[in-house]
């Protein structure tokens, strides 16, 4: 029964549909990672400024996303914010908004950590050479910081890709939802469908995340040596 069940993956257009769902998942992850990288750099730079108020505000922002689970944030925006403002937002939009805000906070912390880990004399030498504020960041600090933050940033991307699996809970037709639809439709012809469909989705996520985590580990080792 189990061995013939694998055919459910190739029945009709099932495989195309699953990959189509994966594309939605990948889109949400990709857009969120881009937005959170850009926002994260701004947040990180602002966190290194010696302003007590800014530091407090960003600390609070970061901790809010670290303490409250992401699924709660998704629910909060999908059900709560839309209800309060009396608007309708698609699950995809909510997912991108929540993931971007979360990613920007985490990325900001990574950028801050990288900038603060740079030896002080780098900044002082730059200043002594008479570089302007922008030149200092553009030519001295950012190129060095980027190398230090890349492993962490890639790690964060892996986490964000994994977290996209949650969007099924707010009604997005992602790879998990498509899988559920196929399982429900083929329950009579392929009773073992759930084993193969969820197995495939498991492997698909692994195929995306594994190379990323190897890359980040390699970079970390290269940087340490």
């Amino acid at each position: 029964m189990l061995s013939s069940g694998i055919n459910v993956l190739f029945e009709g257009s099932n495989m195309q549909r699953l990959l189509g769902g994966l594309l939605i998942t990948a889109q949400i992850a990709f857009i969120s990672i881009i937005i959170s990288s850009l926002l994260g750099i701004v947040v990180g730079l602002m966190m290194t400024l010696k302003s007590r108020v800014l530091q407090f505000v960003f600390r609070f922002y970061l901790e809010a996303f670290r303490i409250i689970p992401i699924l709660v944030w998704l629910f909060f925006v999908y059900f709560g914010v839309t209800n309060m403002l009396d608007i309708h937002l698609d699950g995809e939009i909510v997912a991108v908004v929540v993931f971007s805000l979360w990613g920007a906070a985490e990325m900001g912390d990574i950028v801050r950590g990288a900038l603060e880990s740079l030896p002080k004399h780098q900044m002082e030498s730059g200043k002594a050479l008479g570089l302007s504020f922008w030149q200092l960041y553009r030519f001295v600090l950012i190129p060095q910081a980027v190398r230090r933050m890349l492993p962490g940033a890639i790690n964060l991307s892996t986490r964000m890709v994994k977290t996209t699996s949650l969007v099924v809970m707010i009604g997005v037709i992602d790879v998990v939802k498509v899988g559920q639809q196929i399982i429900e439709r083929s329950i009579i012809d392929f009773p073992a469908a759930s084993f193969w469909i969820y197995g495939l989705i498991f492997i698909l996520y692994f195929i995306i995340c594994y190379p990323l985590s190897i890359l980040s580990k390699k970079m970390e080792m290269k940087w340490e040596s």
Partner: peptide, 23 residues
Amino acid sequence: IELSRNTPLLIQLFFLYYGLTKL
């Protein structure tokens, strides 16, 4: 370790809960 770290918990749970019953 690699399997567990590079896949989402939701999928792990679905596989355990819905998939393994078929075995």
